[in-house]
Amino acid sequence: MYAVTTSPTPPTTSAVRTEGLVKAFGGRRAVDGIDLEVFPGEIFGVLGPNGAGKTTVLRMLATLLAIDEGRAEIFGVDVRERPHVVRQLIGLTGQYASVDENLTATENLVLFGRLQGLRRADARGTAARLLDRFGLGDAASRPISQFSGGMRRRLDLAASLITRPPLIFLDEPTTGLDPRTRGQMWDTIRELVDDGATVLLTTQYLDEADQLADRIAVIDAGRKVAEGTPDELKSSVGDSSLHLLLADPTQLAAAAETVRRQLGGEPVLTPERGRITVPLERADRAADVLTALRTAGISLSSMSVQKPSLDEVFLALTGHDTHSETQETAA
């Protein structure tokens, strides 16, 4: 119809590029100079606690909030100057389901399809296909008010995919979901990328970023404090650790000696509880320790290998934990 033909964009164009992005609410700089670069075809995670400014960044990129300072480009298109074009390149799945509560699942998808120029029959066909794909076929004509949290998120995501946008924003896609639904959501997000989309997601969970993201930016108090692959981030924080609880606390000295021999590191002992904690380079080294302990006739009442939590990552990166943050105020 009225497609604009410009000179071909070089294939190196980033999906998202921001420079010195700033958003202030009142006097508080919720986003305080953030540079990001997301490459086409990757899952990029923005990790941070509540109130860090993750949602605000996403809302600016999705043209929902005005950019106060700095600049942002989506596939080379300036967000501030050409918001209408940017809107044709993105799909947004909000933290709170951005679907219409008063409508059925089908009506919602038909509504968004029609708004984006699909003919009635096409809109219905697309709606039916998406509902089937997201396991909502049986609930197609039920009002959203009867949907569970997981079903809402899936419908919300389906609504973002109607025109198959090349860039998808997911704002905390699994917050509040049960573990099974969470796993399904992760699978769905991976499928999107397999289909060629680029995903920018925010999360408060290190394990989610770890599971999904190719690269992660850690945001704290409106600033980027770290960026890298999940492995780089975790190794910057430190190793995981092995926690052992002895069945018989009197064997503590013998157990500590066995652990020291196996891992080389110096175990931390808690004699009154019969507990040993020791840094672990690789999780599979735990098996060697367990075998050695059994050979030595030392029995355990429990053992666990703990990976660094987001709290530990934060503590290491920012010097404070995640709970000292103020609540997210971005509306």
Partner: peptide, 19 residues
């Protein structure tokens, strides 16, 4: 309508077919 566009070939290329 951009429904039939394959996202694998989109991204930067899609920016050229927008309105």
């Amino acid at each position: 309508t951009t429904l039939l566009t394959d996202p694998a070939t989109t991204g930067a290329h899609r920016a050229d077919t927008t309105h």
